[in-house]
């Protein structure tokens, strides 16, 4: 097992060319790939291209972005939407929770007019959802699947 390669932010990792690509935790500038985190360098082979990534040792700084699958817990219900608290993004548990909102129209793909939020969710339910967009102070989710109801 080779000794892990540790890097600091701003450290030049390698040249940016056809075989080397910048992955997560890195950025490109003036033809070189630089690290943007303090952590371990990993070179992943993907379809003949070497993707240079940097993984931090602590928790990754993750914010919910469009398209992410998140795990959330329902807190408040009204006629038109339900507010929830996002606890996990993908497989990573968040140390700080974020707020999300699920609109009535987004609960079910079909039969949008006759959906009753109170019949689908209760406060305390844990749901799996996908982030659709950003709006005023929170962001909507769509196509939620209830995986577990737990008191």
């Amino acid at each position: 097992m080779t000794k892990p390669l540790i890097c600091v932010p701003g450290q030049r990792l390698c040249i940016l060319d056809k075989i080397h690509e910048s992955g997560q935790g890195t950025y490109e500038r003036q033809g070189y790939i630089y690290s943007s985190l303090a952590g371990i360098v990993d070179v992943v082979d993907k379809e003949g291209v070497k993707v240079v990534e940097v993984r931090s040792t602590g928790e990754q700084t993750l914010v919910p972005t469009q398209g992410d699958i998140v795990t959330a817990q329902v807190t408040i219900l009204t006629q038109d939407f339900c507010k929830c608290v996002i606890k996990c993004i993908g497989n990573t548990v968040l140390s700080r929770t974020y707020r999300g909102m699920l609109r009535r129209e987004d609960v079910c793909a079909t039969d949008k007019d006759h959906v009753q939020i109170y019949k689908s969710y209760r406060p305390g339910d844990v749901i799996l959802a996908r982030v659709v967009s950003f709006s005023e102070f929170s962001f909507s989710k769509g196509n939620a699947l209830t995986i577990n109801s737990y008191q």
Binding site: Y34, S36, L37, A38, E59
Partner: peptide, 11 residues
């Protein structure tokens, strides 16, 4: 900031 894992351009 670097220890927190916030992406930075440089030290």
């Amino acid at each position: 900031l670097a220890q927190a894992g916030i992406p930075m351009y440089d030290t």
